[in-house]
C-alpha cells in the first residue's frame, strides 16, 4: 500500500513538473525542470524495480542531457519567445493520439498482474537462463550483453553515430579547434 502512495506522489510531482515546463518560457528554468523530471522518473523506476534503468536515467537525463542543454542555451538564447499564432491543430493531434492510447489500454492486463503475457511468456526463461547458462546475478546485464547483445551493439553504434554526428556538425575529427582555424586560414 505504501508503494502505491509513493507512486501516486511521484506521479503528481511528474505531472506538475511537466505542466510547469509547458508554462515556463525561461529556458534555464525549463532545462532545470527537465532535469527534475528525469530525476523523478528515475525514482519511479526504482519503485518499479528497474534499478539499472533508474541509474541510467539519473546519469543521462539529469546529468548529461542537462549539461548539454545548458551548453546549448549558453550558445543560443535564454528565453522562449511567446508564439503569436495559436493553432488548434497541435491540441487535436495530441487529443487523437491520447484517445488512441487510452483505447489501447482497455484490454491491457492490470498493472503488476503476475499472470500477464509479458510475465508468463519469456521472462521466466530469461531468469532461468541467467541463473543456469550464464551464471550472472544481474539478469539485466545478462540479457543486455548476451541474449540481446546485438541490440546493445546497435546501441553502441547509436552512441557512436551521435558522437561523430556532433563532431561533423560542430567541430572536426582529430584536431583541436586552433589547428583547424590555421588550416582554414
Amino acid at each position: 500500500m505504501i508503494e502505491t502512495f509513493i507512486e501516486i506522489g511521484l506521479f503528481a510531482m511528474l505531472v506538475f513538473t511537466a505542466f510547469a515546463i509547458v508554462k515556463t518560457d525561461r529556458l534555464f528554468a525549463v532545462v532545470m525542470l527537465s532535469g527534475v523530471f528525469s530525476l523523478l522518473s528515475a525514482l519511479l523506476f526504482v519503485a518499479l524495480d528497474a534499478v539499472d534503468v533508474a541509474f541510467t536515467e539519473a546519469a543521462v537525463g539529469a546529468g548529461i542531457s542537462t549539461v548539454l542543454m545548458l551548453g546549448t542555451i549558453a550558445l543560443t538564447s535564454r528565453t522562449e519567445k511567446k508564439s503569436s499564432i495559436s493553432s488548434p491543430l497541435p491540441f487535436i493531434v495530441v487529443l487523437i493520439t491520447g484517445a488512441a492510447l487510452v483505447y489501447g489500454t482497455i484490454d491491457m492486463p492490470n498493472f503488476g498482474d503476475p499472470m500477464a503475457p509479458a510475465q508468463q511468456h519469456l521472462a521466466p526463461e530469461f531468469l532461468q537462463g541467467s541463473l543456469e547458462d550464464v551464471e550472472i546475478a544481474n539478469v539485466v546485464t545478462t540479457i543486455l550483453a548476451s541474449y540481446r547483445g546485438y541490440d546493445t551493439l546497435g546501441e553502441t553504434a547509436v552512441v557512436f553515430t551521435a558522437g561523430i554526428g556532433v563532431l561533423l556538425l560542430l567541430s572536426g575529427l582529430g584536431r583541436r579547434r586552433k589547428d583547424e582555424d590555421e588550416e582554414d586560414a
Binding site: 541490440d151 546497435g154 553504434a157 553515430t161 561533423l168 556538425l169
Partner: peptide, 22 residues
C-alpha cells in the same frame, strides 16, 4: 526482431539527420 528494428532504424535516422545537415 521487432525491437532490433527500432535500434537499427535509429542508427540510420541519426546518421541521416547529420548527412542531410551537411
Amino acid at each position: 526482431d521487432a525491437f532490433n528494428v527500432f535500434v537499427f532504424l535509429e542508427i540510420s535516422s541519426l546518421s541521416t539527420y547529420v548527412l542531410v545537415a551537411q
